[in-house]
Amino acid sequence: MSAIRAEKTRITAADATPPGVVIDCRIDKIYYGDFVAVRDSHIPIEKGKITSFIGPSGCGKSTVVRCLNRMNDLIKGFRFEGRVRFYDQDVYAPDVDPVIVRRHMGMVFQQPNPFSMSIFDNVAFGLRLNRYKGNLAERVEHALRRAALWDEVKDKLKTNGLSLSGGQQQRLCIARAIATEPMVVLMDEPASALDPIATRKIEELMVELKQKYTIALVTHNMQQALRVADKTAFFSVDISQDGRTGYLVEFGDTRQIFEDPKEQLTQEYIRGEFS
């Protein structure tokens, strides 16, 4: 596993995050080997809201979201400088186990990736992993219902999850992620591999889910961000040096970002996308 350099921070009063912020992500630099993928970005993710990450491809928006639950630790050469505060703890503190971090943040990936097992077992996976003692079937049904998939699969819970359509697979993955009631759900372009109808279902689902969960959403689809997100972080890519380094240009309410962007770059990008 890659070496992670993170200052061991004791959070002081002066440092305190605004109330309601679940994850406070301050990135100084993210490295892949020698190459700086993302630099100087600060995104606070607020409780019960959808925060979307937008920007041109290669701007590192996925990298940022994947560093919140330390998925990037699995990539060779990954190095993180900065701090991700999850409530009052630093996710990158040396004594933190990434496995535990990931148990508290559900994740939904770009490609639907159900396990090659039954629908029921897919959803029950996390429950069993955490040695859930209660009524498994009830929990599974609950999660599937909230993922708006229950009616479609209730009669075939024993069939393999891979036999579902792409849109259903992705909703199954969402059900799998929320079955353990995580505090945050990270979604990395969850609809990019799906057709427009399936995409709309996922979007409705996200709005539904934010009643209960905090959601971080990476998307390349501006309309999607506009439709569902409360807050939006716009990233851009800096190709001045030999590498391509992404960085945060502007962060704010989605409305404000789309209708009244403060930064020139944001204006140009949004105008370009909508014209």
Binding site: V99, Q111, F125, L129
Partner: peptide, 11 residues
Amino acid sequence: NMKNAAFGMGC
């Protein structure tokens, strides 16, 4: 992909 899903669940 599949491995990522499992890691993402906190395995």
